[in-house]
């Protein structure tokens, strides 16, 4: 079975309580029907802007919050049904690296303590000598030095702290690492260090899968195997790395790609880049079936007022929730299939 993690129909709704006697309960649909499978030995990336639901999705996978609906499977076993032994194994197999390297390391612990903790917790008690040897191997993998072990987190720069966080994440030999915007707060040259480190770890540790979350398309391009694009709690497109960038099939993905500043921009300072302004106030009533992206979409038509927004397969491991782009491609692929 090649799926390490599988999500089926995952929803996470947060209630909004305006008044005590509201007839209709309103919800923030942070994650609104997501199906994902993450395979062994891949870097699966979630890309989306703020409010897309990617961090909530990561929290659901990590077990930090519980889904409102849906199932999460780890190696074929459903998480909420897991009992002691399986649950422990599940927790041992996953680790996480957060965005903020300043708040994710305990300021009262030395680096040695920070690294020892997951080892003792998940691998068990080992002799000091073996522990020392093992930690040295870890430090080597992430280009940290032995003298760093006896210092405290505040003595290190942001990039170094993030490397410590990554060392901590691999310490207990996990099968799955979640990285939530691990380089967003770092300078570009430091970011390069961390991204290269991740790629190296992927090579060296053949059995680890990564869930990489970011809003930065360029970073995603550099590290990913497969990419899911999220918008307002739903996955709008899912494809292999090069496919997504060479052949985006959802209007939102296209919009994201066009917005990335790059060095080849021909429209520089000519004022020709004029993104269409759409009025966010609309007279359309709360139509429950309207596509989430309708109001900002350049490809919309009347059909979009009533759309299931379900992902459909278009061939070559590529899924999209919209059929307005490359519509013909989609149809011809069906015939070939």
């Amino acid at each position: 079975m090649k799926n390490l993690i599988e999500l089926q129909g995952i929803k996470k709704y947060f209630p909004i309580n305006y008044r005590l006697f509201d007839r209709k309960k309103k919800w923030v649909k942070a994650v609104d029907g997501v199906d994902i499978r993450i395979e062994k030995r891949e870097v699966f990336s979630l890309v989306g802007e703020s409010g897309s639901g990617k961090t909530t999705l990561a929290n659901l996978i990590l077990g930090i919050t519980q889904p409102t609906e849906g199932n999460i499977f780890f190696k074929g076993k459903e998480i909420s049904m897991m009992k002691n032994k399986d649950l422990k194994e599940f927790h041992k197999s996953i680790s996480v690296v957060f965005q903020d390297p300043f708040s994710s390391l305990n300021p009262r612990m030395t680096i040695m303590d920070i690294l020892k903790e997951p080892i003792m917790e998940n691998i068990g008690v080992i002799k000091n000598k073996d522990l020392k040897e093992y930690i040295n191997i870890l430090l080597n993998k992430t280009a940290l030095r032995e003298e760093h072990l006896f210092r405290y987190a505040h003595e290190f720069s942001g990039g170094q702290r993030q490397r410590i966080a990554i060392t901590r994440a691999i310490a207990a030999k996990p099968e799955f690492i979640v990285l939530d915007e691990p380089t967003s707060g770092l300078d570009v040259s430091i970011q390069a260090q961390i991204l290269n480190l991740l790629l190296d770890l992927k090579e060296k540790y053949e059995s680890i899968s990564f869930l990489f979350i970011s809003h930065d398309m360029a970073v995603i391009r550099y590290v990913s195997t497969r990419i899911a694009v999220m918008y307002k709690g739903k996955i709008v497109e899912l494809a292999n790395n090069s496919d997504l960038f060479n052949n985006p099939l959802h209007p939102y993905t296209k919009h994201l790609l066009e917005s990335v500043p790059n060095f080849k921009s021909i429209n520089k300072k000519s004022g020709k880049i004029k993104s269409k302004e759409f009025n966010t106030f609309s007279n359309v009533n709360e139509n429950k079936n309207i596509c989430n992206y309708y109001f900002k979409c350049h490809y919309r038509d009347r059909e979009c007022l009533n759309c299931t927004q379900e992902l459909h397969f278009v061939g070559n491991n590529h899924y999209t929730a919209c059929n307005k782009i490359g519509g013909n491609l989609f149809k011809s692929e069906e015939i070939i299939k």
Binding site: N196, A218, V219, R221, Y222
Partner: peptide
């Protein structure tokens, strides 16, 4: 030069990013 080489892009060829050692 090093700074430019450390910036990931979204173009077709994905080169290894260059990082700057030290702080």
């Amino acid at each position: 030069k090093a700074l430019l080489n450390s910036i990931p892009g979204i173009s077709k060829d994905v080169k290894r990013l260059q990082s700057i050692d030290g702080v």
